[in-house]
Simulated scan of single mutants.
Amino acid sequence: MASPPRRPMSSIDKAEALFKAATTKPAEAPKARPVPGPAEQVSLKLDRAVLDFFQEDGPGWQERINAALRKAAGLD
């Protein structure tokens, strides 16, 4: 299928296109989210009620605490 014929650009159209290209701010790329590295073992004191809350659902409570902390820190 043939493309439609191009309309010739006037010198004013060309100048406006160049001006627009030179003055238009390029779109910002989305900020890359930090990739979590390997977990680091730390000692942390938590209230008993907080620990009970995360342990209620069984195994994986440490990952749930980590996810909650990442969300609170704005990392997710």
Rank of each mutant, 00 (worst) to 15 (best):
P59S: 11
M9G: 00
A27D: 13
S43E: 04
A27N: 12
D47A: 13
E63H: 02
R6V: 13
I12F: 04
G37V: 06
M1Q: 02
D47I: 03
S3F: 05
K31Q: 12
D13V: 01
L69K: 03
A72P: 01
A73I: 02
K20I: 09
M9W: 07
P4Q: 09
A49Q: 12
L46P: 13
P38W: 02
W61A: 11
A72Q: 12
L51Y: 11
D13S: 08
G58V: 12
R70W: 05
A27G: 10
G58L: 13
A29D: 00
A2R: 01
P34Q: 03
T23C: 05
D13A: 09
E56D: 14
A32C: 05
I65Y: 01
P59F: 07
A21W: 01
A32D: 10
G58W: 13
A21C: 01
P36S: 02
A72M: 08
A15K: 06
D57Y: 15
P38M: 06
E56L: 15
K71P: 02
K14A: 06
T24Y: 12
V50S: 09
L44G: 04
A17C: 01
S43N: 06
E28R: 14
P8I: 04
P8R: 10
D47G: 08
L51F: 05
R6G: 14
R7H: 05
Q41A: 11
T24S: 15
L18D: 01
A17N: 05
P34W: 04
S11L: 04
R33C: 02
F53L: 13
L69R: 06
A67K: 07
L18V: 03
F54L: 07
S11K: 10
D57K: 15
M9R: 07
L18A: 03
V50R: 07
S10M: 00
L75P: 09
P34R: 07
P8S: 06
E28L: 12
P38L: 08
R70M: 12
P36H: 03
P59A: 13
E56S: 14
L44Y: 08
P26A: 09
F53W: 09
A2W: 00
V50E: 11
Q55K: 14
A49D: 15
F54V: 12
A39D: 04
A22V: 06
L18C: 00
A2Q: 03
A32L: 13
P4L: 12
Q55I: 03
A29M: 06
T24I: 09
R48G: 03
G60E: 04
M1Y: 03
L75M: 13
A15N: 02
A21R: 12
N66V: 08
V35K: 15
D13W: 00
K31C: 04
E28T: 13
Q55E: 14
P59H: 08
P30W: 10
P38H: 09
D13I: 00
L69Q: 05
M9H: 02
E40Q: 15
A22G: 06
P59W: 05
P38V: 06
P38F: 05
R48C: 00
L46M: 15
